[in-house]
Amino acid sequence: DLSALRVEEVQNVINAMQKILECPICLELIKEPVSTKCDHIFCKFCMLKLLNQKKGPSQCPLCKNDITKRSLQESTRFSQLVEELLKIICAFQLDTGLEYANSYNFAKKENNSPEHLKDEVSIIQSMGYRNRAKRLLQSEPENPSLQETSLSVQLSNLGTVRTLRTKQRIQPQRTSVYIELGSDSSEDTVNKATYCSVGDQELLQITPQGTRDEISLDSAKKAACEFSETDVTNTEHHQPSNNDLNTTEKRAAERHPEKYQGSSVSNLHVEPCGTNTHASSLQHENSSLLLTKDRMNVEKAEF
């Protein structure tokens, strides 16, 4: 173990290094160091905050020279020094078990990766560091076993998940096959086929009936047209017969005018059967003409 005197000496050296690497504005270890034209180094955030307070150039807090945003430059070497100082402080805390008085939040800088452990060898070769390295080497064999167990647990979990997924996939297939086998029997399929065939026959029977009705309507229309044509021909046949009657009536009127007047009046009210309204109107006109002729003949006879 380190003596108290040596611990104090190391602590004083760390404090001196820390004062050199402090920012003059925030009085902390410089984060993202930036250098000016006057070779003074500050935190990048502190300098941008200072420049944004005034429009135009501002003055350096140490030498009062003008500073602009374009004049600022990043210093990589200074950032490396800060990183190495942080590593020294971490090693000091691990070796002594004491917390550094002016320690900052170094938890963000710590890294437990194997590459980081290899890099620590180049920091300080001390008894405390050696003991700590031995402890780490002793704890390393235990870690692979834990990793193997965790991997086995994960693989077993994956296997159970896969088996569950396969079961879920197989179950719908089985149910679907069961439904297909038990849903419709052979008799049901035959009945469905016969039902479809009967429906098709009914459709075939319905369509000819409609065509037959249309044919019957067409035949009825044709018969009505033929009947009207026969009526017209009958009226045409009746007209010459009426003319013959008129000639006979004229002759009778010349011989017996008194008797014919009474008979002509009675004939006005008689309509021949089986004739249309057109034929009756023609008869009325003929009878009126005959009456006028008879009157003329009677007057001539009187004179």
Rank of each mutant, 00 (worst) to 15 (best):
D1N: 05
D1P: 06
L2V: 13
S3T: 11
S3V: 13
A4T: 09
R6E: 07
R6W: 01
R6Y: 05
R6A: 05
E8Q: 14
E9K: 03
E9R: 03
E9G: 01
V10S: 00
Q11V: 13
N15R: 14
N15M: 07
A16G: 06
A16S: 12
A16N: 12
M17T: 00
M17W: 01
M17V: 01
Q18W: 13
Q18R: 03
K19W: 01
K19V: 01
I20T: 09
L21C: 14
E22L: 01
E22Y: 01
I25Y: 00
C26K: 00
I30F: 14
I30N: 03
K31Y: 07
E32V: 05
E32D: 08
P33H: 04
V34C: 05
V34R: 01
S35Q: 07
S35I: 15
T36M: 06
T36P: 03
C38S: 00
D39R: 09
H40V: 00
H40E: 00
H40T: 00
H40M: 00
I41R: 03
I41F: 08
F42N: 01
F42R: 01
F42H: 00
F42Y: 15
C43K: 00
C43D: 01
C43E: 01
K44R: 07
K44T: 01
K44E: 04
F45L: 10
C46N: 01
C46Y: 01
C46E: 02
C46S: 00
M47Y: 00
M47V: 05
M47I: 06
L48K: 02
L48V: 13
K49M: 07
K49G: 02
L50G: 01
L51E: 03
L51C: 07
L51S: 01
L51H: 01
N52L: 05
N52I: 03
Q53R: 04
Q53T: 03
K54L: 04
K55L: 05
G56F: 03
G56Y: 01
P57S: 11
S58R: 03
S58I: 02
Q59S: 06
Q59R: 03
Q59E: 00
P61H: 01
L62P: 00
C63M: 00
C63Y: 00
C63P: 00
C63R: 00
K64V: 01
K64P: 02
I67D: 00
T68V: 07
T68D: 07
T68H: 07
T68L: 08
K69N: 13
S71N: 08
S75I: 15
T76V: 10
R77V: 15
R77G: 15
S79K: 07
S79P: 15
S79N: 05
Q80P: 09
Q80V: 13
Q80K: 09
L81M: 04
V82R: 02
V82I: 08
E83L: 03
E83M: 05
E83S: 05
E83A: 11
L85V: 08
L86D: 06
L86K: 11
K87W: 04
I88N: 00
I89V: 05
I89T: 05
C90S: 13
C90H: 12
C90G: 12
Q93G: 06
L94F: 07
E99T: 02
N102K: 06
S103T: 12
N105T: 07
F106G: 06
F106T: 07
A107E: 10
K108H: 15
K108R: 15
K108T: 00
K109V: 14
N112G: 11
S113N: 02
P114S: 05
L117P: 01
K118Y: 10
K118W: 05
E120D: 09
V121F: 00
V121H: 13
S122N: 04
I123P: 10
I124Y: 14
Q125I: 00
M127W: 15
M127K: 13
M127L: 13
G128F: 04
Y129R: 01
Y129N: 08
Y129S: 09
Y129L: 07
R130W: 14
R130C: 13
R130M: 10
R130N: 03
N131W: 10
A133V: 05
K134P: 06
R135I: 05
R135G: 13
L136G: 12
L136D: 04
L137M: 14
Q138I: 04
Q138G: 11
Q138D: 09
S139H: 05
E140F: 05
P141G: 13
P141H: 11
E142W: 11
E142F: 07
N143E: 05
N143H: 14
P144H: 11
L146K: 06
L146S: 08
Q147Y: 10
Q147R: 12
E148T: 09
E148S: 12
E148V: 07
T149K: 12
T149G: 12
T149V: 08
T149L: 07
T149A: 06
T149N: 03
S150R: 12
L151M: 09
L151P: 14
L151V: 11
S152R: 12
V153F: 13
L155N: 10
L155S: 13
N157S: 06
L158V: 12
G159T: 08
V161F: 04
V161G: 13
V161R: 08
R162G: 06
R162S: 14
R162K: 10
R162A: 08
T163K: 07
T163P: 15
L164R: 09
L164I: 04
R174T: 11
G182R: 04
D184Y: 02
S185F: 04
T189L: 05
T189N: 07
V190Y: 03
N191V: 03
Y195L: 13
S197N: 09
V198G: 14
G199C: 12
D200V: 06
D200L: 04
Q201H: 01
Q201T: 12
L203V: 10
Q205F: 13
T207S: 09
P208H: 12
Q209P: 05
G210F: 03
G210E: 15
T211I: 06
R212A: 10
R212K: 07
L217S: 11
D218Y: 05
D218L: 06
D218W: 05
A220K: 02
A220S: 02
A220E: 05
K222Q: 05
K222P: 13
A223D: 01
E226S: 13
F227I: 15
S228T: 13
E229V: 11
E229C: 06
T230V: 15
T230A: 12
T230Q: 06
D231F: 10
V232A: 04
T233N: 14
T233K: 09
T233G: 11
Q239H: 05
N243L: 05
N243W: 07
L245R: 13
T247V: 04
T248E: 11
E249K: 05
E249D: 04
E249C: 04
R251Q: 05
A252V: 06
R255I: 03
R255L: 10
R255D: 10
H256R: 02
H256G: 05
P257G: 11
P257E: 13
P257F: 12
E258Q: 09
E258D: 03
K259M: 07
Y260C: 04
Y260M: 12
G262V: 05
G262N: 09
S264R: 11
S266Y: 11
N267F: 08
N267R: 11
E271S: 09
P272M: 12
P272Y: 08
C273T: 15
T275V: 04
N276Q: 13
N276L: 15
N276C: 05
T277N: 03
H278D: 15
A279V: 10
S281E: 08
S281C: 04
S281I: 03
L282R: 03
Q283H: 12
E285L: 06
S287N: 09
S287V: 06
L290W: 04
L291Q: 06
L291G: 10
M296N: 03
M296Y: 05
E299G: 03
K300T: 10
K300N: 10
E302K: 15
